[in-house]
Measured scan of single mutants.
Amino acid sequence: SFNTVDEWLEAIKMGQYKESFANAGFTSFDVVSQMMMEDILRVGVTLAGHQKKILNSIQVMRAQMN
């Protein structure tokens, strides 16, 4: 498990989005775990492969939080 959203993004090789997530207010796992595709688009993730990777990881995160 990760301590910060930045660490999580690095771990899934999506570190290039750290600033975008932070600027959009997605700075805690409570918020990130609620993200939908529209949120991912809003933070500027436009590549389908990256969207899928982030969404898949969020689903895993949700499962671990319950």
Score class of each variant (00 low, 15 high):
S1V: 14
S1C: 14
S1P: 15
S1E: 11
F2G: 07
N3P: 09
T4E: 10
T4R: 06
T4F: 06
V5S: 02
D6V: 07
D6R: 05
E7K: 07
E7M: 08
W8A: 00
W8Y: 02
W8C: 03
L9N: 00
L9V: 02
L9W: 03
L9D: 00
L9I: 03
E10Y: 06
E10F: 06
I12D: 02
K13Q: 14
K13A: 15
K13W: 10
K13H: 15
K13M: 13
M14K: 01
M14Y: 03
M14G: 02
M14S: 02
G15T: 06
Q16D: 07
Q16L: 06
Y17S: 01
Y17D: 01
Y17Q: 01
Y17P: 02
K18G: 05
K18W: 08
K18Y: 05
E19V: 10
S20P: 08
S20L: 11
S20W: 06
F21I: 02
F21G: 00
F21Y: 02
F21D: 00
A22R: 15
A22H: 12
A22F: 13
N23F: 09
N23S: 13
N23C: 07
A24F: 11
A24G: 09
A24M: 08
F26A: 05
F26S: 02
F26T: 02
F26N: 02
T27Y: 06
T27P: 02
S28Q: 06
S28K: 06
F29M: 14
F29N: 02
D30V: 12
D30Q: 12
D30C: 13
D30Y: 12
V31K: 15
V31M: 13
V31N: 08
V32Y: 01
V32M: 03
V32H: 02
V32G: 01
S33P: 04
S33H: 07
S33V: 15
Q34N: 12
Q34K: 13
M35L: 11
M35A: 02
M35W: 03
M36G: 15
M36V: 15
M37Y: 12
E38G: 10
E38Y: 08
E38L: 06
D39Y: 03
I40M: 11
I40V: 09
I40F: 06
L41C: 08
L41K: 12
R42Q: 09
R42N: 10
R42W: 06
V43L: 12
V43A: 15
V43R: 01
G44S: 03
G44M: 02
V45F: 01
V45E: 01
V45P: 01
V45T: 02
T46G: 06
T46V: 12
T46A: 08
T46Y: 09
L47W: 05
L47K: 12
A48E: 15
A48C: 09
G49E: 15
G49A: 15
G49Y: 11
G49F: 11
H50P: 03
H50E: 06
Q51C: 07
Q51A: 13
Q51E: 02
Q51M: 10
K52R: 12
K53A: 15
K53E: 13
K53S: 10
K53W: 13
K53P: 03
I54H: 00
I54G: 00
I54P: 00
I54E: 00
L55Y: 14
N56H: 14
N56W: 12
N56F: 09
N56G: 10
S57A: 15
S57L: 08
S57E: 15
I58A: 03
I58Y: 01
I58E: 01
I58S: 01
Q59G: 10
Q59K: 15
Q59E: 15
Q59H: 10
Q59T: 09
V60G: 10
V60L: 14
V60T: 11
V60S: 09
V60W: 10
M61W: 05
M61Q: 05
R62D: 08
A63E: 15
A63Y: 07
Q64F: 06
Q64C: 13
Q64Y: 06
Q64E: 13
M65E: 07
M65S: 07
M65G: 08
M65P: 05
N66E: 15
N66H: 12
